[in-house]
Nucleic acid binder design. Sequence first.
DNA 1: GAAGATTGACTTCTCAATCTTT
DNA 2: AAAGATTGAGAAGTCAATCTTC
Lengths: 164, 164
Amino acid sequence: MADKNRNTIDLRQVVWSEFLFVHASVGRQIDAGLASAGVLSMDWYDVLLTLERSPDHRLRLNELADRVLISRSGLTRLIDRIEAAGLLRRERSVQDRRGAYAVLTTEGAAALGTTWPVYERLIHEHFGKLMSDEQAQSLHAFLSKLMPAPTPSEPVQLGIRRKP
Amino acid sequence: MADKNRNTIDLRQVVWSEFLFVHASVGRQIDAGLASAGVLSMDWYDVLLTLERSPDHRLRLNELADRVLISRSGLTRLIDRIEAAGLLRRERSVQDRRGAYAVLTTEGAAALGTTWPVYERLIHEHFGKLMSDEQAQSLHAFLSKLMPAPTPSEPVQLGIRRKP
DNA sequence: GAAGATTGACTTCTCAATCTTT
DNA sequence: AAAGATTGAGAAGTCAATCTTC
């Protein structure tokens, strides 16, 4: 701690409190926008997109829990709901019968496609359009330090990639 | 939307997804650190600090709900718990007997004081120390655009201010 | 009737315990 | 016994309905 004087306002602490507020505020607005458009919520989108990007559109539940930052038991229940909606299915692993995969269904892929244009607009509206190019660079440089090391073959991407 | 090509990766969208992940990841680490130190959680800290900064250490529940971004009913229950722990108390307004205030207690103020050094260390450890000065400036410039207009008499401040 | 706050019913998350397979 | 996933019990949030006061 470089600064022992409590009266001095540390800009990084201000940034942290703004970070918390903005996450809550913008997250609510975007989820409300998605709901009123009748498309996927951010949570479901995140799970299904993670599957879409994985080899064979499938992932071990364990792995999925780490990617979407939810507890194991929380994931089991989230997967239950998404599976009941038909957007993914579970498959038991053949080699290791303890483990299960979540696999994206055709309906799930379709839901991603329907959601993305709406989500994209909402991200821009409530978040992106207020950011200058320099701010975007700077934010990315900082936030990426707090991200898990990405698989080199799977670059970061939020939207749906068309077939080339 | 300036860009109609879905294949083009928009940096702002990447920043949004990093923003979500980092919030979840760092928030968990900090809350775990607070819990293992036996001090207030971020939620409780946020409520009590908001009271501490308000005139007479009190605020209408309605107002409080807006500041901490929680639904009215959610706030009622959160306040119930904090009140049961003795860190604040409710007071009925005399002029308008529909309304209630939440008022910080001595115990609540003490809890803020105990929590802050721990919280400060955790913010630095998991968030602040990874941020350059330029990044802090840049982040603040962007995030403050998404914050509600501050009362001029109450500047943004996260920690506990000592009496001058 | 409208405003402020609370309550009931429901949803979703978490931890700890459990079950199955290795 | 350990790993992977699920289940039970409990905590905490939301919406819609309700109660009190203006």
